[in-house]
């Protein structure tokens, strides 16, 4: 049940076994945790810099990985500008790529 991947190997069953073992270990550690934790009290509410948590607010998908996306934004905006949706550009890219491929196969 082992997939050879040239320099290593991959066995999902071993991985699953390890994953189960790690989960059990985590559960075991958790069961030894603090007894003074109480559900449904302020202890379980998120800490928002001491502010009261507003009702019904949900952090939408658009706000996940915000910093990550912001860091990439300059590159992405440049790429988006290239995706004009202009069908003539599509054709031009095809011709340019074809010219490149031709140069490569004829000269190399």
């Amino acid at each position: 049940m082992i997939l050879e991947t040239f320099e290593g190997f991959w066995s999902p069953l071993v991985w699953t076994a390890v994953a189960v073992a790690v989960t059990l270990l985590a559960l075991a550690l958790r069961s030894r945790g603090r007894r003074d934790h109480k559900k449904g009290t302020e202890q379980t509410a998120p800490f928002l810099s001491g502010e009261a948590a507003p009702d019904g607010v949900h952090v939408g998908g658009q706000h996940l990985y915000w910093g990550f996306v912001e860091a990439l934004r300059p590159y992405i905006e440049r790429l988006r500008a290239a995706h004009t949706g202009f069908v003539v550009d599509y054709v031009t890219w095809l011709v340019v790529a074809l010219a490149g491929i031709m140069l490569l196969v004829l000269l190399v």
Binding site: G85, F86, V87
Partner: peptide, 10 residues
């Protein structure tokens, strides 16, 4: 005008 038919872009 193909330049104006660009609803799908980006």
């Amino acid at each position: 005008d193909a330049g104006k038919i660009r609803e799908l872009r980006g």
